[in-house]
Write a protein that binds this DNA or RNA. Structure first.
Lengths: 151, 151
DNA sequence: TATTGTTATACTCTATAACTATA
DNA sequence: TATAGTTATAGAGTATAACAATA
């Protein structure tokens, strides 16, 4: 007999587990994004990369990955997809010749705008039940929870 | 030239996208859960199944999947894992001989309690920065967002 | 006909280790 | 020696179609 407290792990444990609700909600949003982007050649992860590069042209590939929580090794094929679709361009950094600077092509910027507009519309639909207050509270709380290191 | 409104899709689009913050936060929690459960033979998805079955012994396999957003086809191997570890038992339903009724074994219940206790501790750490109000608001909002159909 | 569980299969995202070229 | 990007590979979750047994 271990000294395990069984009394509080009662029915409904999952229902109070934030991680469970996060997974359910995140999956719903990701699935909706995927449907929204279907036919564009863009997937959620690719869109996120386009968005970061749009905001900060010339950003290094590794930095993009850091900001998105995508490991360097997994960035490679994603970047290759965007290159093959000619949505981004890359050039060797002059300060550090190991690094790649990324920027959007014209097509890339067009594609990004189109996807962003569609995503925003879909997200508004998903959030239709929330008040403005609830929405800002949600974003604030989520940012607190995932912002870098556990602080 | 399409009639696309480029003016609002400005820098920082991702930072206002709920789906992005959900994914980042959910991934952080899932990764922490996976670490918490490392060595137990249990993964987040398996734990969720154990929790549902613990709460409603005799529940049908398909119903468990529905509640967790796991498709029937994907439930099969998960249930097989739990059966191989002798954490659950299943029997043919008398009302519907196509269906399986699931319940936890003794070992299954022990394992569930141990995992739940560990997860709760880890989740508390992840949530340490939130006030009680923020926490309840978060759960309420997430439930609204993922609860069945888009209502 | 419809549904429960199953098989087979593929895609997406994530994780780790070892390599190269530069620093 | 450390870092940026790469290669190779594996794990885990999710998605669809087609099938057998039962309803």
């Amino acid at each position: 007999m271990r000294s395990i407290d069984t009394t509080d792990v009662t029915a409904g444990f999952l229902d109070e587990l934030v991680g469970y609700h996060l997974r359910m909600t995140s999956n719903k949003f990701q699935a909706d994004f995927a449907v929204t982007l279907a036919g564009t050649g863009i997937r959620p992860a690719l869109f996120a990369i386009l968005s970061i590069v749009n905001d900060k042209p010339g950003i290094n590939q590794g930095v993009v990955g850091e900001q998105l929580g995508i490991q360097r090794a997994n960035m490679v094929s994603l970047i290759n997809e965007l290159l093959e679709q000619k949505l981004i361009a890359r050039s060797v950094s002059k300060e550090d010749r190991r690094a790649y600077r990324l920027s959007l092509s014209e097509i890339g910027r067009d594609t990004y705008i189109r996807c962003a507009t569609a995503i925003r519309a879909h997200e508004r639909a998903l959030l239709a039940n929330l008040s403005a207050k609830e929405l800002t509270a949600l974003i604030t709380t989520l940012k607190k929870l995932h912002s870098h290191d556990g602080d």
